[in-house]
Write a protein that binds this DNA or RNA. Structure first.
Lengths: 226, 226, 226, 226
DNA sequence: CATGAATGAGTTTTCATTCAT
DNA sequence: TATGAATGAAAACTCATTCAT
């Protein structure tokens, strides 16, 4: 993956981090995710991140040499998680099963890591200043690869001729929307993905819409609900 | 609509603004939309907005008494545009035509006002600090009303039994995605909605996916392309 | 009197001011007195003075060319009133009567123009940047003259040998205190000079203290109260 | 005492301040007293206070989070000193001795801390925005208590029936006048309390006036001068 | 005589970052 | 590792004053 990791501590003598270093870096990244996703890069402050991570500003800057490097490390940290589900789309599997599984996984990510979703959305919306290279290389490669998988399914007559890239965009858009716009969703419905019932109805509705839209029967005959 | 307008200049004697005031306010709002959507609230600076609007910082603050009031006025300004399309969904029309028209309009908005879309997304993602009340009242009322329209179509057997709210969310998510994530889209496809071809293929793909997903045949028999 | 008057309007063609000019200058001075005495020179703003005077900032600056010139005019305006009572101290009168009358007048001024008193106090406390020359010339001459009057009374055996200057300072200090510290007085007693009863008891107490302190019987035999 | 202290630095873990903190806070308060008493709250600038205290503006704001908090801390700092003398008025002592001592102490404070006196006067004259609560509680309690002492002396026939509150006000007014109006006093007499001779003559004159005014012989028989 | 529009200098405050220990 | 102390650059906002009409 194109390098996006934050700098190492000032004295990089040891490659292997000590126990306490490992723990503090992790505390910082967690705190940073909260702050950056809530306030954006400019709105977040090093001081609040440090406070949230339970350490002094100075100490935080011992681990990450600048605000930007914390931000980059945070992005790098979530990007991995973010792109994993698509990788699992299996060309040998059944199109409906594969796409349904993908959608389900994406919604699960939105439910479990809404802050990561918002951080990512924020970064991209502001022009992807940090991760544009990653998008242009790694993500592009992945999308091309999986588009081919879908194209193959289409050519094999196993689903309708939907544009694979638009299909992928639609899945991203829909699943991430439930994380990114959760405040709006809660304002309109009184609930959001953190509620298991709403989570389940979301998975059902989105999967059904997209799969049927792609000419795949869903839910399958005799398949209850999900 | 729940009030969200920015303050008027110092002497509000006249409701109708003078020519020059009208023009300057409009210049400011345009500049502010650019800045806020690109940098977020905290990242934007009054100075850059003023420069972009072609006036001094002080003069800008003569028209809007604070950064926040510029932001609110900008939000109020776009909100109207933003909510209009859904209002046009006609209970007496044909479900497929109505939904297709709605999707097309939303994508057109995304193409024409991507910055407005990103500003709105940003606001909601940060917890909708300014517009939450509007979401909870006006938008909620509108969504409930249009959900009922869809429900009626379903009960009349004119479309599949998709959850109306999820259907609306899916349309929002998908259409806005093309504005909000245009940098990512451009990184992956080399183009975006500003390209008429891509615009058209997006409308076709999204409409087809969602309408077919809702059990509505699309494109109709003998309907070429769109 | 050493010159301290504010500048005349921009076009000084006419020495005699028009009716409306006269009225506006007077409105401004009144408003300025309120503002300056409440907030001090730096804390007062031209805008608030203008608002209080019921005109636009620009118009106010048509009458007085700068904030400082308003301030000077205000000071000049009150100084006359401020120094008048001492001038009336009559060498031919009875010491007790004269001093009692002076004290009564000073307290009346404090009651009627507490803002003027505070403005004056403020100016002096900040080093009398504007009126120092007046103090050094006009006021000094007056004090010397009236000190001599008191000295004469002392030499004539009509009162005790109190230092005339300290006597004058004591009268100033005491009488002005009731205006300048009225907030503290109200916090401690629940009332102040604006209450006729308190006004009267103040006159009685202060006069009695100072006159008896100077060896003058007060209140006189058979003189009820005052 | 009703709370009026300024905030502590960022990490308030330790109640006891470090050596360097103690020193810097004290430098700041001293500089602030000078600035605020000379220019008033609005006229003073954080930058000048910092310069006077020999540190950068930013560092000053590391110790006090805002201009207002410096101001409050400064007020709190002087208030203690300010109210102490009255507390020493001893009901068991001789009225003349006690009052003379009180007057002497107050004039000494005026001589030693004229800036504190002016700061206090300024605060009260502007409506006591910060210390009104202190006046209404602590100071009021103290004044009531000491008024009773004086009343007892009067009832015991040890002094004339002067209103105790007015007596206290007169003492405050007179003694503080020599600090607050020292510029005027210097303009009129060519000297002020900083001159030992003038200091002494002031003590003599004021004490004599007030004590004799209250029916107390002063100076006592055979008591030379003071 | 009056006002709306515009501005530049100054002021408070925030904040990432550096320094010393 | 850890932190308190210090700082400079930038940002929002204020306000007296000027300009044009």
């Amino acid at each position: 993956m194109t390098c996006l990791s934050g700098q190492s501590p000032a004295s990089p003598k040891q490659v292997g981090l000590s126990r306490i270093q490992e723990k503090n870096r992790s505390l910082i990244l967690e705190a940073a995710l909260g702050e950056f996703s809530k306030k954006g890069f400019s709105g977040a402050t090093v001081e609040r991140i440090a406070a949230e991570a339970g350490m002094s500003k100075s100490n935080l800057l011992y681990y990450f040499s600048s605000k930007e490097s914390i931000y980059n490390a945070t992005l790098a940290h979530i990007l991995e998680i973010w792109l994993t589900p698509l990788k699992t789309l299996d060309p040998l599997g059944d199109p409906a099963d594969e796409l349904a599984a993908y959608i389900r996984q994406k919604i699960e990510l939105s439910a479990e890591f809404p802050e990561a979703s918002r951080l990512f959305a924020n970064e991209v919306m502001q022009g992807a200043p940090q991760i544009l290279p990653v998008l242009q290389t790694d993500l592009k490669r992945l999308v091309l690869e999986k588009s081919q998988v879908i194209k193959d399914w289409i050519e094999a007559g196993r689903m309708d001729a939907v544009d694979p890239v638009h299909l992928i965009f639609t899945i991203w858009a829909t699943t991430q929307h439930y994380a990114d716009f959760s405040v709006q969703i809660r304002a309109l419905t009184g609930t959001d993905l953190s509620d298991p019932d709403f989570h389940q109805s979301t998975v059902a509705a989105v999967t059904s819409l997209i799969l049927n839209g792609a000419g795949l029967k869903w839910p399958r005959e005799g398949d209850p609900g999900a």
